[in-house]
């Protein structure tokens, strides 16, 4: 902890105190973990019988893998569409024409402020009356995720372009480039590098939010793993929750590591004139009224 702003490098007395504190906390953390273990044990949750389904290939083939595919399918479709949406609306918000800039701004702000589940419900119920009968669970999940995450990404794109040092575009104009050349050849190539970590962390949010599909019976990992699976294997609810929880955490953490790695790479890079765009709150959108992720120049 020598890098901490809070603590000095410990001297002999502090080291003794720290060792003591470590001992106490080991006991404390151990006690908590043991308490949880005993609590589960008392309810028979470690019984081999209810964990057995998870070592059988059939369980994975018939429930977990199809669910995982459902989750990844929705996430992939929504990710592609959200990035497109973000690119279009992010640039539209930077337009010189008020008739493009203002409506784009309103759309982005509104979709960022709507609770995602309400949006998904609405699309789910509205779609059949507009487009005729059919199964709209996938459609509602993907469109809801696209509109919401796309709006967040639009802010990331805007912040990314704005974070490129002013001299860059001025230099572009000075050598006679047009507006679109400046954007295409000077600003975007630098901005995209800067935006990558923020985009990837928003994709983690998107992947996590696919689980909302569970509520409208979209066949995703949560649905097959947490609803169907415990119904087929009686009593396996808690093991199922633990197994699919691990899958979600593993998926999202690998994406998060990608984001941190990209961020570190960007910070090292000397080719770009701007620091990385701060990721939007990894939990969900920032409310209206404050710019997401202003530029950090380091």
């Amino acid at each position: 902890m020598s890098t901490s702003v809070l603590f000095d490098v410990p001297g002999p007395r502090a080291r003794v105190r720290n060792h003591l504190l470590t001992l106490v906390s080991v006991v404390l953390v151990g006690a908590v973990l043991y308490g949880v273990y005993r609590g589960f044990d008392a309810k028979g949750q470690w019984a081999g019988k209810i964990w057995e389904p998870f070592i059988q290939a059939d369980t994975w083939r018939e429930f977990i893998i199809p669910g995982l595919i459902g989750t990844l399918k929705a996430a992939a479709a929504a990710a592609v569409l959200a990035m497109l949406f973000g690119m279009v609306f992010g640039l539209a918000r930077l337009s010189d024409h008020a008739w493009i800039r203002v409506p784009a701004g309103v759309i982005v702000e509104v979709f960022r402020a709507i609770p995602l589940l309400l949006l998904i419900f609405f699309i789910f119920y509205l779609a059949p009356s507009v487009m005729g009968g059919g199964d709209y669970a996938f459609f509602a999940v993907v469109l809801g995720l696209t509109l919401y995450n796309g709006s967040v990404l639009a802010e990331v794109v805007r912040a990314g372009v704005l974070s490129v040092a002013r001299g860059q575009s001025e230099a572009g104009y000075a050598i006679g480039m047009r507006k679109n050349q400046v954007m295409r050849l000077v600003l975007l190539p630098q901005a995209i590098t800067v935006m990558m970590p923020a985009i990837v962390s928003q994709l983690v949010v998107l992947l996590k939010d696919t689980a909302l599909g569970y509520i409208i019976a979209y066949v995703d990992l949560l649905n097959t793993g947490f609803k169907i699976l415990p119904a087929v294997f009686f009593g396996s609810l808690i093991p199922a929750a633990i197994v699919i929880g691990i899958i979600y955490v593993a998926l999202n953490m690998s994406l998060s590591y990608l984001a941190t790695w990209l961020e570190r790479r960007t910070r090292r890079s000397r080719k770009v004139t701007a620091g990385p765009v701060e990721p939007p709150s990894a939990m969900a959108a920032v409310g209206a009224g404050q710019p997401t992720g202003g530029p950090i120049i380091d």
Partner: peptide, 15 residues
Amino acid sequence: SLAALLGGVAACGGG
């Protein structure tokens, strides 16, 4: 292209 993609998703869901 965004509109086309959205339309594509709609077609998938549309039965």
